[in-house]
């Protein structure tokens, strides 16, 4: 963009995109416009879908985890049918089936999608970049302890580590263990200990 001072119209700042517009950004605009013109989608539907995804965040998953820590019957339902249990809390998993895997005594779980980037996005939002990148996808199934170590998570040698490889239709989420020293805590307080990364399984919940 030149700054010659010759243009007088106001520049509306571009939406937050990284770097100069690429060929594929032009493709997105072109495809979206064609779909709107042909009546396949409306501009309003696209806007609403962006807003809905913005509203999905790890806080939603934290609410589910905190409920499971507080209510053993809910936990049982969550482990039996994750999507149905989330629906009880008003969370729609969309077309995907949620499978919740619980950490236990000497058992740690971690999730990945080796083939692409499947992730419980309808529950906790879009995945972090590293989840979709080659290093994590390649290595976590072969050397999970080493990968967890890179996140600062040391799992004792006598613990079992289970790695769950997601598919397009089936998404895993880890139910961490409730931290010790949280007896009598409210669900809201408990949810504050639950991070995105501990629901992926690369870290443990925050300490109280």
């Amino acid at each position: 963009m030149s700054d010659t001072g010759q243009h007088s119209h106001d520049h509306t700042p571009r939406p937050d995109q990284d770097g100069p517009p690429s060929y594929y950004q032009a493709m997105e605009t072109a495809v979206r416009e064609l779909l709107i013109e042909k009546g396949v989608v409306t501009a309003e539907e696209v806007r609403a879908a962006v807003e809905a995804m913005d509203a999905r965040s790890p806080a939603q998953g934290a609410r589910v985890v905190a409920r499971a820590w507080s209510d053993p019957k809910f936990k049982a339902r969550l482990l039996k049918d994750g999507s149905a249990a989330c629906a009880e809390l008003g969370i729609d998993m969309g077309p995907t089936h949620l499978v919740v895997v619980a950490n236990g005594d000497k058992l740690h779980n971690v999730i990945v999608c080796t083939l692409c980037s499947c992730y419980p996005r309808f529950l906790i939002g879009l995945p972090p970049d590293w989840y979709k990148a080659r290093a994590y996808r390649s290595r976590v199934v072969r050397e999970p302890r080493a990968v967890l170590g890179e996140f600062g998570t040391e799992i004792p040698d006598d613990w079992e580590v289970r790695v769950h490889d997601s598919t397009a239709d089936m998404r895993y989420m880890v139910l961490p263990r409730r931290p010790e020293g949280t007896e009598g805590w409210s669900e809201e307080q408990l949810a504050g200990l639950v991070t995105r990364d501990c629901m992926i399984g690369v870290t443990l919940p925050k300490s109280p």
């Binding site: 080796t114 990148a133 290595r139 072969r142």
Partner: peptide
């Protein structure tokens, strides 16, 4: 790529740009 050798996990993250969210929305 599951099980293949690869380098360390790079923990950097970026906020999704609007055009990326729109692709997702589509």
């Amino acid at each position: 790529m599951g099980g293949l050798p690869a380098g360390p996990v790079e923990r950097g993250e970026h906020d999704y740009a609007l055009w990326e969210k729109r692709v997702d929305a589509l």
